[in-house]
């Protein structure tokens, strides 16, 4: 009896996981999460990062200073 219940529960859980994952797949929720949440966050992170700015380097310095840094 208990084994039967366990089997039922496992099958139920698997079916629920399958249905959940299928919804993620079908409604492109993985894509939406990436595009609407991860992407704006990362964009901001990258924009905030301190990086060398090639535009601020005087032209005559470009070769010697910028590229070798």
């Amino acid at each position: 009896m208990k084994a039967k219940k366990n089997i039922k529960r496992t099958v139920g859980a698997l079916a629920a996981a399958y249905a959940g994952l299928f919804c993620v797949f079908y409604f492109d929720l993985d894509g939406k999460l990436l595009y609407y949440v991860v992407e704006p966050f990362m964009k901001r992170h990258f924009d905030n990062m301190e990086r060398r700015d090639p535009h601020t380097v005087p032209y005559e310095q470009i070769d010697s200073e910028y590229m070798k840094k």
């Binding site: 079908y26 409604f27 492109d28 939406k32 609407y36």
Partner: peptide, 24 residues
């Protein structure tokens, strides 16, 4: 204006199931 598709394509019962498997 969106980067993602509204939803994935319905390719028919068998092929959508296959597509889903490949996605996983």
């Amino acid at each position: 204006g969106d980067m993602a598709t509204v939803r994935r394509e319905w390719k028919g019962a068998v092929d959508t199931a296959y597509d889903f498997k490949e996605w996983l």
